[in-house]
């Protein structure tokens, strides 16, 4: 079900993390938390959808860390933003979800393994993590989500409208939008 009264408050822009063409016929925005198990379960499904719809789909990830429920979600988001400085945001995003079961039990030490797995320079990383612009960006994503009606993670928006329902419904919804635009 697409919720007509819950719209993205912040349009997709150059400052977003985007995969896929700006000319894609449909845009899927996820508000996610790297420590959230439900987001971890959605991750391979999003990948499948991206492969399936290929050039027709643009995917955007925005941070929505629920820091009290998930004590390492904020640090994980910061790590992804630090990786983004050297163009490795998606590599970090993928590692965090693919290895969620492995790093979460070890918290910060588990996250360090992620930095090593990507071969990120530790000193540069530590300096980047101290940059308050990273916190500000994560908070901007978060508050933009709140204003858009995000009520938990993951939350998905199809062409700017909140989708509520299961993942199969989301896939069918994307398919319908693409079919309509192609004709």
């Amino acid at each position: 079900m697409i919720v007509e009264d819950a719209r993205l408050a912040l349009p997709v822009s150059d400052s977003d993390h985007v995969q896929g063409s700006a000319h894609a016929v449909v845009t899927l925005v996820e508000y996610g938390d790297f420590q959230c198990p439900a987001c971890g379960m959605a991750y391979p499904l999003v990948k499948q959808v991206q492969r399936h719809y290929a050039g027709n789909l643009r995917f955007v990830f925005r941070h929505f860390p629920l820091t009290q429920a998930h004590p390492y979600a904020q640090l994980a988001a910061e790590l992804a933003e630090a990786a983004a400085v050297t163009g490795r945001f998606w590599a970090m995003h993928d590692w965090l979800y693919e290895h969620q079961d492995e790093w979460v039990p070890y918290g910060a030490a588990g996250l360090e393994a992620g930095a090593r797995a990507l071969g990120l320079d530790e000193e540069a990383l530590a300096a980047t993590l101290r940059n308050t612009a990273i916190d500000a960006r994560i908070r901007r994503d978060f508050m933009g989500g709140v204003r858009s009606g995000v009520n938990g993670t993951p939350s998905f928006y199809v062409d700017g409208y909140l989708y509520q329902g299961d993942f199969d419904g989301l896939v069918h919804g994307l398919g319908r939008v693409i079919a309509r635009r192609e004709h």
Binding site: L66, T67, Q68, F142, V146
Partner: peptide
């Protein structure tokens, strides 16, 4: 719980 977890993040706001 999800709803209250969200509000818990917004106390500063």
């Amino acid at each position: 719980s999800d709803q209250l977890a969200l509000y818990n993040e917004l106390l500063d706001e």
